[in-house]
Design a protein around this nucleic acid. Structure first.
Lengths: 224, 224
DNA sequence: GCAGGGTGAGTAAGCACTTACTTAATGCGT
DNA sequence: ACGCATTAAGTAAGTGCTTACTCACCCTGC
């Protein structure tokens, strides 16, 4: 996640930066599993293979450790921050006004990301419930930008006459709802996929088609 | 919630049942605010206006207190458990094969319930993250039943030729996604309604129309 | 030889939970 | 209507353990 080099379960000494990253990673794993108040600094130390004192040599408090995780995540996300960054197929579809393609590739990227980063999703949920200000800001900025970006595209396509008259933010909310709820089911409530077991491609395709039919001005006919 | 009589901040003695209910309510409020491990038995006692020992006279452990909350909720929900119980307009719409009415009244009831019971929603989220077995069972049964009920209706309407060929569970997932995500925004991430501020009627209407256009066999035309 | 990674053994406060005890209500026989 | 036993509501002050956090002091590789 943060740094793959730290995987070596090195018994002896370790450069400071590397040990710091390892502690960060251990804390991340544990916070995402058991929440902030459900995780002890002793647990974090044990998982990092060091004494508790080392944790406090790198981070002055448990709270600071939490803040450092979010800071690290914010940076490490980098180019992959939004589902349209480094998503060439989606940007190409936007250019070509291929609405189904736009929604499909957006959905695909989002679902893959949720699946690849279950721990981070859990952490975000915990911090939303615990009302950690940093997480709230993180989520606020991120979601706001998605509404802006997708909303703009929808408004433009409404002007083209492709989409019916409806508040674009409602379309975005519906679409994100499908994606997030699907991921939430897979992460939290139905991890065994007992209710619905479909792969990301099928899900992305279904949700894209659903939202497109839902928002289209003229009856939509599937390519297949 | 559990019992309104307990509102009296009665300084002196109180009948056992009443005090028990009061402690249950305090614990419910605190668990939903700060999670299970974020809440102390001392907090619960203070909020109930009694000593910690009283908490343990009524409930043998913190875990049992948690279980008692879920048990109490399970019963108190009663007739209002599912969004179609005591929802005459929706059942009437089903009878009349008024698909828009079915989705609208379902959505309306669900959104109202989420809004009225924010604390319970938070508690369910916490317990999903904390993987409390009782909460998982609670959620599993509930969601499973919703998929069965709505899925059946959709399958029947597919047989009528009203809905296109698509796995009904995907339609249900899309629809529940819209509703839950909308409530989640209002409860957790966008409590100030900065991104999207619409009332439940508008939301229910929009989502119902969206899912119906998304799933309909023939192009849907709105009544308005 | 010394900077910096690393620790063992703390500390004070907080945790879930218990014990030994006091106080207020409720019968109930006379 | 009274005294008195019984019971239930309530608590102060613990129990042993865990928590976040500290400090004095080792090593070891360069």
């Amino acid at each position: 996640m943060i740094d793959d080099l730290l995987k070596c379960d090195h018994h002896g000494r370790m450069p400071g930066d590397q040990r710091r990253a390892q502690i960060l990673q251990s804390a991340f794993d544990l916070f995402s599993q058991k929440g902030f108040s459900g995780t002890t600094t002793k647990d974090i130390a044990r998982r990092s293979g060091v004494s508790e004192a080392m944790v406090f040599k790198h981070f002055s408090s448990k709270d600071e450790l939490y803040a450092a995780i979010l800071e690290a995540k914010k940076c490490s996300e980098g180019l992959h921050k939004y589902p349209w960054e480094s998503n060439e197929p989606m940007l190409a579809a936007m250019e070509a006004k291929d609405d189904l393609g736009v929604f499909y590739h957006f959905a695909r990227q989002a679902l893959e990301k949720h699946q690849a980063d279950v721990a981070f999703m859990r952490l975000l949920f915990y911090s939303a419930l615990e009302e950690h200000e940093l997480a709230e800001r993180f989520f606020g900025e991120f979601v706001h930008e998605i509404y802006r970006f997708l909303g703009n595209y929808i408004a433009k396509r409404q002007a083209d006459g492709a989409f019916r008259k409806i508040d674009p933010r409602i379309v975005v909310r519906s679409f994100l709802g499908m994606l997030l709820h699907h991921s939430l089911n897979n992460i939290l409530w139905d991890r065994k996929r007992k209710i619905l077991d479909i792969d990301n491609e099928t899900a992305a395709k279904s949700f894209a088609e659903m939202i497109l039919r839902g928002a289209a001005a003229v009856p939509f006919t599937a390519a297949t």
